[in-house]
Simulated scan of single mutants.
Amino acid sequence: MEAPVAVLVMGVSGSGKSTVGSLLATELGWKFYDADDYHPEENRKKMGKGIPLNDQDRIPWLFNLHDILLRNVSSGQSVVLACSALKKMYRNILRRGESAATQKYDEPGEKEELKLLVVYLNGPSEVISGRLAKRKGHFMPPELLQSQFDTLEPPSAPENFLSLSVDRSVSEMIPIIVDYVKTK
């Protein structure tokens, strides 16, 4: 398998996606995107009111993120994306764009799909809830964390993924991910 040209750092809110993703991109010399920066204003308002996003809210946002990733990769720029990508379907959209809606994971796509390594940051809700309680100025309120755990479909075969516990320090995670990227 060729080295991934895109790394998705995923997990529920408060798992450390943005921190790990930005440091990983710096370490690899790749471009970094935080998916939260691309939420439409309607999604931000909805979450700010404590209303969980649904598929109708997320899918257009994910299509946009796929297009951003594809544009970078097509121009030769490898990327790291921090994005919750809670469902397998969402990760498929990030890999395949609109064609993901009509195909299963292991079916060949009509379009070239992104080579994507999924780095799943996982941990117990108590630990992540404690992190969220300390976070200030984010549009995602801690009250929505349980809805994210309810939606979560952890990555599984045949997805190309690496699972890391949030109990590890970021300084422990980055070398593990970099080594994994370089050996894949």
Rank of each mutant, 00 (worst) to 15 (best):
G97K: 08
V79K: 00
E126R: 09
R135V: 00
R96K: 14
F63H: 13
Q77N: 06
A101Y: 02
K87D: 02
S78G: 10
A101N: 03
S84M: 02
R71A: 12
N92G: 10
S75L: 14
Y105E: 12
P141W: 00
K104G: 13
E110D: 12
K88N: 10
I93A: 03
S84D: 03
W61F: 11
K115W: 05
K111A: 12
H66K: 07
S74H: 10
G123K: 03
P108W: 03
Q103S: 13
Q103L: 15
L114E: 03
L86H: 07
V79A: 11
K115A: 07
G109L: 02
R96H: 10
E110F: 10
R131V: 05
A101C: 09
P141V: 04
P124K: 05
G137W: 00
G130R: 01
V127H: 06
V80T: 04
H138F: 00
G109A: 12
H138T: 02
F139D: 03
L121A: 08
F139C: 05
L94I: 12
I93H: 08
A85K: 06
G76F: 04
S129H: 15
K88P: 00
K104Y: 10
V119L: 01
N122V: 11
S74T: 13
N122M: 10
F63P: 02
S74E: 14
L81V: 09
K88L: 07
L116G: 02
S78R: 15
G137N: 09
A82T: 08
Y90G: 07
G97T: 05
L132I: 00
R96M: 11
E110T: 13
L132G: 01
V119C: 04
Y90S: 06
A85D: 02
H66Q: 05
R71E: 15
K104E: 14
L117P: 12
A100Y: 03
